[in-house]
Write a protein that binds this DNA or RNA. Structure first.
Length: 117
DNA sequence: TATGTGACATCAA
DNA sequence: CTTGATGCCACAT
């Protein structure tokens, strides 16, 4: 059971682990995951990891949106609105490819997984 | 070793 | 609202 500090596992694997920790009906941002992994503002790495997540089954990539709650990665899913439907099926409100009440559904690993809050 | 790439974030105009 | 520029860094070739 490797830790996030373990460099023997790839950055991708860390991203997948975090994404899989996202609770049902919640969303988070690429930047938040990047910060949680200690990569700072390298949110691109997270997005890129998601691109490779197609090979993984247990990665709910649809729960990862950009800082504005925009479903930027929807084009990478099958169909045109699969990502939106997945989120809506979890109770997340979507309008114009954007999460409504983002603050309500937002799940930040830095906050939620931190004990010394 | 060097270069290209990317589902972002942030700021400036 | 939009466009453009810049930083960021793991990974593929």
């Amino acid at each position: 059971m490797p830790t996030y500090s373990d460099k023997s596992i790839s950055f991708f694997q860390k991203v997948y682990e975090v994404v899989k920790l996202i609770p049902y009906g919640r969303v988070t941002s690429y930047g938040a995951i990047a910060r949680y992994l200690g990569s700072g503002g390298s949110a691109r790495m997270v997005g890129w990891a998601m691109n490779a997540s197609h090979n993984r089954d247990d990665v709910p990539a649809h729960r990862v949106v950009n800082r504005s709650g925009l479903l930027t990665g929807k084009h990478h899913f099958q169909g045109t609105n699969l990502m939106q439907q997945l989120l809506e099926s979890e109770g997340v409100e979507i309008a114009n490819d954007q999460v409504q009440n983002l603050d309500k559904y937002y799940w930040d690993p830095n906050t939620e997984l931190s004990n010394d809050f």
